[in-house]
Nucleic acid binder design. Structure first.
Ligand code: FES
Ligand code: FES
Lengths: 141, 141
DNA sequence: TGCATATGATACCATTATGGTATCATTTGT
DNA sequence: ACAAATGATACCATAATGGTATCATATGCA
């Protein structure tokens, strides 16, 4: 079971990379160079992030992307939401015949608890928390 | 993100149904009748559970399946393991260039924590815990 | 003994999600 | 004007999921 899919992953890496860049804008080429992500796929992802308001784009020569939010305000949970939809673990195990009394269903309760715990753990993972902090070299890849 | 896939779900329902049955063996026909699961798919699942040692099968007229373990010893986690493989949330976000220092990666730690919590919540979900207990009608479906 | 009824084994198929390409249009610095 | 960048969009390949189809084998019973 993948909690984080490829596009979310790539988006996260790209955002971290842009956040760490000294230049005011970062081009796709620079990111491809650094992250080794397939160029057209990365472009699609960045365009999406732009539409979602996480990036600002600059067209034309010397163009590229820059963050439109402080790295502290870019949450992994938002990326997951964008690329994978809302984190819903399981609506109900009994798909067709829905539980007559969901509130009393023990499994349903446990799934809800797991979801809650998961969100709680992920909620303070931001781009900021992944870069620079203690100079973690792994996130500069 | 689905924590529980269709076959795991169906297997769980079937096992609960067999556990609740008064008869010594339960036929596929009876289960199809009760659970409204596509017959050939259910057969495949039951054959799998038989191979895995969770069910005993009886061929021929009047045949069917019965539990080979006490419902208390049939864990949802085992079903998940059988049908979905081991519950690994994410080996590593950076797929190709693996972290030079995994132990220091904050995201990796969080994913491990989530996995741990998830297992911890699920580990006492057994067939027994889902049937009869307080006569929950929803699990008799 | 023979047959209906049940599971065992296995191969195949349809749909969807994921991961990725390809192409052309538009903007912009020089 | 032109090269260098992104915007938009349609398409494609692979794998996972969910499901079928078919034939072989075992068994209870008339
Ligand atoms: S099975 Fe639907 S909520 Fe319990
Ligand atoms: S990114 Fe691989 S363990 Fe942190």
């Amino acid at each position: 079971m993948k909690l984080i899919t490829r596009d979310t992953d790539y988006a996260l890496r790209a955002l971290c990379s842009i956040a760490q860049s000294k230049a005011p804008v970062t081009s796709v080429s620079a990111l491809v160079q650094e992250l080794q992500i397939p160029r057209p796929f990365l472009r699609k992802i960045l365009q999406c992030l732009n539409k979602e308001g996480l990036l600002v784009s600059y067209k034309g020569k010397g163009g590229g992307f820059s963050l439109s939010l402080h790295p502290d305000k870019i949450y992994l949970l938002d990326l997951i939401s964008i690329f994978q939809g809302d984190l819903k673990l399981n609506e109900c195990v009994f798909k067709k015949q829905v539980c007559p009394n969901k509130a009393r269903c023990p499994l349903s309760k446990k799934l809800a608890l797991i979801e809650e715990q998961t969100v709680s753990v992920l909620k303070d993972v931001t781009v900021q928390s992944l870069v620079n902090e203690n100079q973690r070299p792994e996130y500069k890849v």
